[in-house]
Design a protein around this nucleic acid. Structure first.
Lengths: 188, 188
DNA sequence: ACCTGAACACCGTTCAAGT
DNA sequence: ACCTGAACACCGTTCAAGT
């Protein structure tokens, strides 16, 4: 069997979702594809690069159109909620996306969307960047914790899911409110 | 040579600070102590437990008294800034503390301090918990990114250090402002 | 272009046995 | 109580060679 880069990413996503990030190893993925682990290095320079492609695919599959003619708050919330949904759709998705973003190897879409949304809302560039990063840190942190809890799989975790989702909105609103306050004090 | 648990933690901290988290392995630490890796399992059930002790020690060494008779905003900022300083004091400190906290194995002090500060400020329990988590997610995310950037060691990173510190305050103020707004709207 | 086979330099953890 | 020695079951990555 001969594969292309996209075939490898697709299979990596399956392994991730079925067995989790600790089991997504180059050797395991090779076995899954019926290929030597070394063969993967024809498609990717190293494991980090592969993970970056996996993170970008998770985000691409979760991509939804942003509300066009909406208030900046609504757009920012939509980006964050969309990011959350995309990450929750795959086992360990939050950890994969957050790690890849931290290493600067990919998953840059949401950051760019947030920053441009905040600049369009009239925030000066430096503040738009800081505020966008603050939102992202919140989303990555909250959703990673939420997903770990969900995947612990206790009956309690499943019962708590709606409260987690509502907690996500609450914390998000806190940060958005802080941004709005700063924006209004600048406009005056 | 015979060691106690605290000796092992101390040496682990040295290895962490000199060589970084990827080189803090059970085998490496054993070599550093002049002991077989298996000997470490007499002191710690596994590597995660050892890392939890390391994280708690990082926080203990960075501990400073909180401003007693101060506004809740000032206390919350002091907790967050103190946490940042403690994590920045050791190589890869942010990653260690954030990981241990995420796994629920330790590093619980700052979360407890923030939550009690916010409850004392009159926030209802649920909101105090959510707001404390939001602050923590921000601090862990920001400082991890800041430390990675600093440790990349480029001339640019060092020149950017003061701006990073000021960015930390800016983002932190955003979240605090959001909490204050929610608190005031509840008091009315 | 894509893969094999073999090797290199590692991991965390367990466990019987020693002092 | 604390440690040794050996083993088990893995890792990521490189590289010459094959088709």
């Amino acid at each position: 069997m001969r594969y292309r880069r996209t075939d490898v990413v697709e299979r990596a996503l399956e392994v991730l979702d079925r067995y989790g990030l600790p089991d997504l190893t180059m050797r395991r993925l090779g076995t899954e594809l019926g290929v030597q682990p070394s063969a993967l290095y024809h498609h990717f320079a190293n494991k980090q690069t592969l993970l970056a492609a996996v993170a970008d695919e998770i985000l691409a599959r979760g991509r939804r159109p942003l509300p066009e003619a909406a208030a900046w708050e609504e757009r920012a919330v939509a980006v964050c909620a969309g990011l959350r949904d995309a990450m929750l759709a795959y086992r360990d998705g939050a950890e994969v996306v957050a790690t890849v973003h931290a290493f600067g190897l990919g998953a840059a879409g949401p950051a760019a969307d947030l920053e441009s949304t905040l600049r369009a809302a009239g925030l000066p560039d430096g503040l738009a960047r800081t505020a966008a990063r603050t939102l992202l840190h919140y989303v990555f942190g909250h959703v990673s914790e939420e997903q770990t809890h969900l995947q612990a799989g206790s009956a309690g975790a499943i019962a708590d899911a709606p409260r987690e989702a509502s907690d996500f909105r609450t914390g998000l609103a806190l940060v958005i409110d802080g941004i709005r306050l700063r924006r209004e004090s600048l406009a005056r």
